[in-house]
Amino acid sequence: MKHVFGVQVGPVTFRIGSAWRKPITQLQALYRDYPKDGGVPDFTVRLAPLRPWRRWIRPAVAIGGDFVIPDAAPLPLDQGLLAAEMGMNLQMALGQRRFLLLHAAAVERDGCAIVLTGESGAGKSTLAALLQGRGWRLMADEFVLLDPMTGLIHPFPRPVSLKNDSIDVVARALPHSEWGPLISDTPKGTIRHLVPQAHAVAGAKSPARPRLLLFPRFCAAPDQRVVGAGEAFVRLTQASTNYVVLGERGFLALTRLVSDVTRVAIDYPDADTAAAMIEGLW
């Protein structure tokens, strides 16, 4: 590819190749403080035009790589950074075998982790980002990596993908943060990537023992309830992209996780309330 960027995020290395310079420049800025990787990567992403002339005329970025979804719609070049991030997610979702992947966020304190999971739009990314300002280290957004051998959560601190109103909420709460460009008119509205705080990137090789499994939901009336191990297990099998592929390793890792942690669903109207609830559970 004409333009190439290699990076290491936690235990995973990526190489992103692009027919255009702009997405690579944006990646270099977003991942400025991450370890660079020029070796053989775990996963490769390619951003290329559907037809050669579409590099210049109405340029559209098709996401390629080791693992692809056939017939995925290309994105406009303005959303090239988003295409790169989606490509990296796709490689993990379809190709990761070493870890059980949970669609979740995670934060750490004192060597122990909170795993925040829930459906898209539940506010887990926003909450994880905001907890950074309250003494927590961001371990992951989007994918939590659970090691089936040890039961530990391994950091995968990619930039946090924030959407619409939550962008301003987090920007006000964390005024000195680094951000990627504002990406408008995506299928999910406006998206902006928040660079994790320095200690999250620096601590990307420090795993943590999961202690609390949280099912947060952004909601006007604060509430909390204990979630049974069986319900938590089912919800996490649904939140995992590679549970089936991992077979019994995934089964044992997940049953162990839900058995070992405190499991609570919380409804929170704002970060202060959520943080107070979490302190009460910690």
Binding site: G230, Y243, F251, S259
Partner: peptide, 22 residues
């Protein structure tokens, strides 16, 4: 079979099929 108690339920992994049952 691999069987794990999860509170009042039991998770079962059936090795022959690779299917999980609760």
């Amino acid at each position: 079979l691999s069987m794990v108690d999860l509170d009042e339920l039991v998770a079962i992994f059936h090795r022959a099929s690779g299917i999980t049952h609760l």
